[in-house]
Amino acid sequence: MNIFRLAGDMSHVFSILVLLLRLRVAKNAQGISVRTHELFLIVFLTRYLDLFTTFYSLYNSIMKILYIVSTASIIYTIKFQEPIKSTYDKSQDSFLYWQFAVAPCAVLASVTHLIGSGISGFSFIELLWTFSIYLESIAILPQLIVLQRYREVENLTGNYIFFMGAYRFLYILNWIYRANFEAHYQHHWVVYICGVLQTLLYVDFFYYYFKSKKSGGRFTLPT
């Protein structure tokens, strides 16, 4: 554990809390993509199967359970809880995530896992872990698309996405730190490439976020 990873994890937890708070305060789901959180739930459920097989630390286990429960709670709130449920506009949140996210990531994960480990080293848990790394890298896409459609970004929504992006950026710093200060460090290029891709997806958002904070004006995205 280092300061960057801890800050990254905290930023992630904070973003989830901000979103839950935002849903409860505003009592609507305008500008929020439930599909992004469904993708994150798939990511967490496929990655954290090692909760049953390996114990790393109490911190690690608690955070994993927290991510799963809080993400499920976001989905439940938007899809099933009134009055929020009736404000959720399905037609705006129409990213075809099975075709454009889950299926391609499953294929890519199968190919890279088989190349990496061969038939003999094949492990279903490993395969799902690789799949979750790929899927996480694009899980924010439905949210960014919804944002683009609404164009005007509500304050807390902007903050929730900002902390989500900050979390990914801090993880890159964490890898740089680990590579420099840990003995027997091993590079993992799939993790790096997906992590960088995921962070790059936020760059455009960050640009307009900081611009609006600086001007103190309303946060709107260009057409």
Partner: peptide, 10 residues
């Protein structure tokens, strides 16, 4: 077992 390396991350 080397594969465990990155799995202590979330």
């Amino acid at each position: 077992i080397d594969d465990l390396y990155f799995k202590d991350e979330l």
